[in-house]
Amino acid sequence: MAKRNMVEAINAGLMEEMEKDPAVMIIGEDVGKEGGVFRVTDGLQAKFGLERAVDTPLAESGIVGVALGLAINGFKPVAELQFMGFLPPALDQILNHISRIRNRSRGRYTCPMVIRMPYGGGIHAPEHHSESMESILAHIPGIKVVIPSTPYDAKGLIVAAIRDPDPILFLEPKRVYRAIKEEVPEDNYTVPIGEAKVLREGGDVTVICWGAMVREALRAVEMAAEEGINAEVIDLRAVSPMDDNTYLESVRKTARVVIVHEAPKTCGLGAEIIARVNEKALLSLEAPVERVTGYDTTFPLTKMEQDYLPSPERILRGIRKVMAF
């Protein structure tokens, strides 16, 4: 088994599905000859030709809007948006059309497609290249929002996303793209969409996270372990649908919760998780749930981005706070 980073793992998943299913096609800006600005689609045009890995005009609304048309007429488009900061022009198509077509046509038309995009901060990128807007997407009925945190999951989830009968927004934490290498099977496999993963078992506190925050949370938890705090870490892997059972079971055991996300705090998904904990496990709690998140500000440029992003130290502070309550 080869060790791969997340870029290579997603690339492998795309390649396998394109080999298996001639309906799978890649569209987006710079996805063809260039192979994507992060090289996720590298080699696909060389291997499958100009008609299956297609460079499009520079127009995000156009890319996802035509993807709907392709999807309702026999193709399985995997559209790439270059950065999540450039998602907004495409939101109209996602909100008003892609997410609703199954419902509007009472199942007559469906939209099996994937919209991939790198998201999140921490790589010293320019303005509009560091945003985390997953809660905006999770708020839209009719689309699923998947976020891998490791190369293994990324491959299994992209394959599952392509095969899913509904539209999937596939958010790739760009900070992790080349930061982790791990064993990724050569075989074709899937990771189920909507299943969280317990990354570390512990009885004292539950830390819920996703995307690039998983690594930060694991570091924080190692520091907490030195203080005798035994934390359980859960990677949601999809924020819509959310795997409630996995974290609720953990909460019932630990009675203490810290939620970590790099998106702004207000109306972030931490709020939704707290609501669900309150609805289903309120009486298990021994402390108010703590959120360690980005702030309610524009994502700052590089001089201040580390101040904005939740760090292991800030997460540890959150863990200590719920433990001390």
Partner: peptide, 11 residues
């Protein structure tokens, strides 16, 4: 060019 995409692909 728009990054790698030549003008003829824009219009």
């Amino acid at each position: 060019y728009a990054i790698s995409v030549p003008r003829k692909i824009q219009t």
